[in-house]
Amino acid sequence: MNKRDLLAYSFLTVFAVFTIFSMLSMHSFGVPDENAMDQYIIDNTVEETGASNGVTAVVFDYRGFDTLGEATVLFTAVAGVILVFRRLKK
């Protein structure tokens, strides 16, 4: 075991302990804190957007900017893949 492996193992141990400790101090599973934004969306999504699917209403209406960024990332990735595999010579 050389010095680099030792460093990697110690980093991984610290990261694992920190992550598991922070997960243990989360709120308990199934009883989240009261969330006014989510409760508002659940209560008003049918009247405001006319969609029964709450997730689709959030994706396309309440948080449309997120979806715009997601579509941009997908477009850029597809353009990058096509660019990388482009035939250089016919």
Partner: peptide
């Protein structure tokens, strides 16, 4: 009902069909 949500579903659906198939096609 739904306003622009079904129209946006169709637009994004077209985009995802073409995008995901183009990746596998090129590979």
């Amino acid at each position: 009902t739904g306003g622009i949500i079904p129209l946006m579903n169709f637009a994004v659906g077209l985009k995802v069909i073409a995008g995901l198939f183009a990746i596998v096609y090129v590979m």
